[in-house]
Design a protein around this nucleic acid. Sequence first.
DNA 1: TACCAGGATATGG
DNA 2: CCATATCATGGT
Length: 298
Amino acid sequence: MIQNTTFAVTVPEDFRLAPNLGYLSRAAGECLHRLAGDAIVKALPLPGQPVATISGGPRDRELNITLSGAAATDETAKAAADYIRDWFDLDTELAPFYRLAAADPLLEAAARLHRGLRLIGIPDLFEALAWGILGQQINLAFAYTLKRRLVEAYGVSVPHEGERLWTFPAPQTIAALEMRDLLPLGLSVRKCEYLIHAAQLIADGTLTKQKLAALDTREAEKTLVAIRGIGPWTANYVMMRCLRKMDAFPIDDVGLHRALHHVTGAAERPSRREIAAMAAGWQGFEAYATFYLWRLLY
DNA sequence: TACCAGGATATGG
DNA sequence: CCATATCATGGT
């Protein structure tokens, strides 16, 4: 008989569950978590793959976490709490961002409409890199399709209430594949190359989250861009969602361009130079500005 | 059915 | 540093 364990995670004052649920439910094709009413259910990529059910706590400023599917040790609970704090970026102080957003016509609406939204992360480095590579130059719906195929082919699942919950494939698994293993999933030849190579760098210890996190944003970007298949967009995307570099800024992102086009009401999408000017006041919060602007679209 | 999508690389100027 | 060609496939 598997025993569940329940605990609370404290959230900051500027956290609200609703906009985060809104973000997490945006993608019908998402395969690494699901929503059950107002609860989030996810198999955590931790030893034993504990299944976390996350809901609003009975008290304010708390999330209620129930773990199942793994030995309910204190160690597991602590690792799960750490993962969830990272996933929801609960340790970033957002008041300065809200102050600058309130005074910025480009950010004001997004910050008001989605107030309480945190920059939902991808704590696992390989998952973040892979998701970036998968998302290059294709529409998001197709990117989710590719991710689902990859996860269901090479990920690990745990049973939960009659269905399977998946975790992302391990880099060691993907590193051992050949192109012919991934091509049938619909990846392009280049995506296969990039993905397998990135998996090998992580599997052999060349590339670690810890080493990247120790670098400043510019150095981390240089390190990432030096990897085949990782350009400025992917590097900044990974720095945003995994390394938690708040000044990471995927300025070439088409979604960012569309969102800025929308909020400016301009006839055409802004140029790179125009975007750089728009973002001049966002220093230190480019990642949050981008994440909130995306919410105007997706 | 064209056009486009949360780009990257290679090449030439 | 900037412009262009190429990749490559499904969604709308």
